[in-house]
């Protein structure tokens, strides 16, 4: 999963896509995931980090992560 270059999330959760001109709001866990993708962390590691940090079962976290990825694709934030 490669986030398009120049896409950055600010601390306030504001995300701007310079290619399309769209802006988004992202919640804190979403911000962490996007940063991890930008650092080229593998998905398995991202999932592990979520499980370590939050009270959540693996199935839910995995399902939600996949859904989030689909939304990133949908909003053309992926290369």
């Amino acid at each position: 999963m490669k986030i398009r270059k120049n896409v950055a999330v600010s601390d306030s959760g504001f995300l701007f896509n310079p290619l399309t001109g769209d802006s988004f709001s992202v919640n804190p866990i979403g911000q962490t995931i996007i940063s991890s993708f930008k650092e080229n962390k593998p998905e398995s590691e991202i999932l592990e980090n979520i499980l370590e940090e939050y009270r959540v079962d693996k199935n839910t976290a995995e399902k939600d992560l996949n859904d989030f990825k689909r939304m990133l694709e949908n909003y053309k934030l992926i290369d």
Binding site: S10, S12, G13, F14, F16, S23, S25
Partner: peptide, 11 residues
């Protein structure tokens, strides 16, 4: 500046 748009949008 987009910073201003960001601020009103998020805060």
């Amino acid at each position: 500046d987009i910073k201003e748009f960001e601020q009103i949008s998020t805060v």
